[in-house]
Design a protein around this nucleic acid. Structure first.
Lengths: 237, 237
DNA sequence: GAGTGGTCTAGACCACCGT
DNA sequence: CGGTGGTCTAGACCACTCC
């Protein structure tokens, strides 16, 4: 059982335990906030914060004037919007993730790359070409580009470590990203690299990754083989 | 200028105005919470709530012990994860959205549909087949299925109104959804319906929509023509 | 050590829901 | 109408960052 340090975490985890162990089944109504405050020996403000976190996570709904209720289905944790790690998604699908670096080079940024990464035109960037595997079968071909400025202390052939870890280690951890998904047809090269037929459908993802202050730090182009692991998105109004 | 009723909204909108009008440029540090409280004549708790909302929206970052800072890029508002409305996305892309109903029928649910919509096997559901257009050009072909039980008061031919509005009007407004995206190849029928070539890539989306209490209310299968409006996803760690 | 955000309290009043 | 969540206050102490 998770036990946090702060009272907020204690209340949140206490409520979560009720939910997971069936003490508060789907559709049931929680005790009111005053009662919860007494039960956990905290103020009502603290209860509200804990309940708010569970509402945010999709476990509870508040209805003004009526009460707080338990929902039936929590949000999926390994969706595209909820994690940045394909490694995690592949593992979640019950497969063994792997990574193979095809090439890496330093070259001037194109105009589009300069705009996306907020660089001066022609400024140097590091590009890595990789194949991601699941149970040794190729599933993603990717081209990742990072500004050379961020990597001054990183030797050229060092991009074999996971890029998110690398970026975190140089002080630019990735927190958010925006990705555009487009279906495409495999050309001869992609077909060969990914082990599919020419003309087979692939999921193309163009993504820009941002640091915690919102500065763009990496631009990725990816081609995914469909049907191996799910690309799921949690949506909300 | 948006002016809310609650003090919380007044503070939030006040800060947002600073951000949008450039009074607080990207990377700059906000005054501390005590000062903001004095400026807006509210308590620090209220300031924290307003700032929290802007952090949630991606406009600000808090750094414990250091300060609150303005980020460079706000989260995209019309991404797949942030809205359920394709109408809105199409309009955002500068085009005129349209909708054409091809057919509707009531029939028993398949096994998969029963599982997804939490019905008894073979229970009746209403199915609608539609084409969505942007500037009169077909962009999405969709099959939507809703349990007949939810629609007892709705006459059979009435599914021409937007389905989200219809569901809200019968007391089951959609709040969240989970969608799986897969690239596919257009077959002869889809190619004809969507005005593309056979063999062209299409984005397939299988989606389940949930009410505010987490009960599944609609299951949709969609085929999107790529390149008309963007399918973007905001991601976070 | 000074300044910042993070947590927490005890109490108040309001807005909405249902009977 | 009573009960619920929604908003708000004034003040306190803690944890962290950075000089």
């Amino acid at each position: 059982m998770p036990v946090g340090n702060s009272r907020l975490e204690q209340v949140r985890d206490g409520l979560l335990t009720d939910l997971l162990e069936g003490a508060a089944p789907a559709g049931s109504k929680l005790p009111n906030e005053q009662l919860l405050a007494e039960r956990f020996q905290v103020s009502r403000a603290t209860v509200r914060e804990a309940v708010g976190a569970l509402v945010e996570g999709g476990y509870l709904v508040r209805r003004h004037g009526s009460g707080t209720y338990v929902t039936s289905l929590p949000t999926r944790q390994h969706a595209l919007d909820a994690t940045l790690s394909y490694t995690r998604m592949i593992r979640e699908a019950g497969m063994r993730p792997g990574l193979r670096v095809l090439s890496q080079q330093t070259r001037p940024a194109t105009e589009e790359e300069s705009a996306e990464l907020n660089l001066s035109p022609g400024e140097a960037l590091r590009e890595v070409e990789r194949i991601r595997t699941a149970d040794d079968r190729p599933v993603v071909y990717s081209l990742d580009r990072i500004s050379e400025v961020l990597l001054t202390d990183v030797p050229a052939p060092a991009l074999t470590t996971p890029l998110y870890e690398l970026l975190a280690s140089v002080g630019s951890p990735v927190r958010t990203a925006t990705a555009v998904l487009t279906p495409v047809i495999a050309n001869a090269r992609l077909a060969k690299l990914l082990g599919v037929s020419r003309g087979a459908p692939l999921q193309r993802i163009e993504e820009t990754d941002y640091s915690e202050v919102g500065a763009p730090v990496m631009r990725s182009s990816e081609w995914h083989v469909p049907g191996i692991f799910e690309l799921r998105v949690n949506r909300r109004s």
